[in-house]
């Protein structure tokens, strides 16, 4: 409990936590928060500046509110930007969290196996990590996504789960497979340092098997750096998702995602600045929240990481 108190006293962690909490809240409740449907096109209201009043024809009744305000304006297709920005939070957080979960699983497994068993397994796993690390920037994710985005694959993925956009599956896989190298390296270092300590030796002397030593003694002691790295990785994955969607490889329009909106709005920047400004702000704030929270966590949980993660 001491750590939690200290965390809340840490200013950047507290601010970050608030931003993250707001983002999570929006992502969970966007279907109630959003004033309008994010995909519906309101004919006659294309390209409206923020604050434009609207009244919907009777034909649209039974749907959302018949009259109201486009607080953040509309895009060229007459879609409400505010609703799209709110729904975009769901995509960003879902991709950020699931991809990070995959990163943690892979990174943790590789790091622990390499550090604990050492020898040839260490050599092989670390060369594998180097290989993935040397893969230029987002390119591996781009290549994986381009493969998964083909019609045949998309159809197959849609068959698996009808309510998740197939582009989302692609993002999970592409980002999940690419962001784990940093985690693997830090965890390996941690395990290497711990392996020689007395408590591991004691556990072995008492007759603990490898599995028990790993799961009961090593994993809990890796949690501090892991939590810090994972928080920062969420920020990174959210940014990457936006970048990939911006390149037209992630979530496809008309589904709402921040990166996708930026890509759609880009040609109309001069006439409809609100189309590009608001999703970008939402994105920057969310990422800032995770980074601040991660900074605070690091200062409280594992200050030594400072020189390794910043």
């Amino acid at each position: 409990m001491g750590a939690l108190k200290e965390l809340l006293r840490n200013r950047s962690a507290a601010v970050g936590l608030v931003i993250v909490a707001v983002a999570v809240f929006v992502a969970l409740t966007c279907q109630w928060l959003a004033p309008l449907d994010p995909v519906d096109q309101y004919r006659g209201y294309a390209n409206q500046a923020p604050g434009t009043r609207f009244e919907l024809a009777a034909a649209a009744a039974g749907g959302p509110t018949p009259a109201g305000t486009f607080w953040l304006g509309t895009d060229i297709n007459g879609r409400d930007i505010l609703s799209r920005v709110l729904y975009g939070a769901r995509v960003s957080l879902l991709v950020g969290l699931v991809a990070t979960l995959l990163n943690v699983l892979i990174g943790m497994t590789v790091g622990i196996l390499a550090g604990y068993y050492g020898r040839w397994l260490d050599a092989v796993l670390m060369r594998l990590t180097d290989t993935f690390f040397a893969f230029p920037g987002m390119l591996l994710a781009i290549i994986i996504l381009a493969t998964l985005n083909q019609p045949a694959v998309r159809e197959a993925l849609t068959g698996v789960t009808s309510h998740i956009d197939p582009g989302m599956w692609g993002l999970f896989i592409a980002l999940g497979l690419t962001g784990w190298t940093g985690i693997a390296r830090v965890i390996r270092g941690q395990v290497l340092a711990m392996k020689e300590q007395e408590f591991i030796e004691a556990a072995r002397a008492v007759g603990c098997g490898h599995a028990r030593i790993i799961l009961v003694h090593l994993v809990p002691n890796c949690l501090a750096p892991l939590i810090v790295l994972a928080t920062m990785q969420v920020a990174y994955n959210i940014l990457s998702e936006a970048g990939l969607s911006f390149l037209g490889l992630g979530i496809q329009p008309p589904d709402a995602s921040w990166g996708g909106m930026l890509s759609e709005g880009r040609p109309y920047m001069e006439t409809a600045w609100w189309w590009g400004v608001f999703p970008g702000l939402a994105l920057a704030f969310t990422v800032l929240g995770f980074n601040l929270f991660g900074d605070g966590l690091r200062d409280v949980l594992d200050p030594r990481l400072k020189t390794r993660t910043s």
Binding site: G259, L262, G276, A284, L288, N291, D295
Partner: peptide, 16 residues
């Protein structure tokens, strides 16, 4: 910390 959080391509669009 804002600098590491800002989406690069969005910053580019805004500067543009």
């Amino acid at each position: 910390v804002t600098g590491i959080s800002i989406p690069v391509f969005w910053l580019g669009l805004m500067l543009q």
